[in-house]
Design a binder for these strands. Sequence first.
DNA 1: CTCGTGACGGTAT
DNA 2: TATACCGCCACGA
Length: 104
Amino acid sequence: MDQGSTYKQIYEIVKQIPSGKVATYGQIARIAGFPGHARLVGYAMHSLPNNSGIPWHRVINAKGQISFPKDSVENALQRSMLEAEGVVFNLNNSVSLKRFQWRI
DNA sequence: CTCGTGACGGTAT
DNA sequence: TATACCGCCACGA
């Protein structure tokens, strides 16, 4: 099912994440057909243009936290976007995956 | 063509 | 149960 590039597969999965939910890199990689290749997802996100329309902010790491440094503007932006969708963060800056993690 | 790096995950201790 | 280390593929220069 690889119509073109590997990244496109990943993007297709990310676009399926519903608002108010989040998914982990590993989960996306597994669904896209690359189990254990979470890093590729991260690199794919890094390669995303700002106007791609991909909900990249709904992608977080397995620890339930944003992978960007807490002092990074990208981190604050992602967190702000998630909160706008109803996602709640714990005191340790982690998302309650039990409540918000996307399920297939 | 070759080398290094990256928005991470899993397993072992 | 928590923390540390290593490895994986693809892309860009």
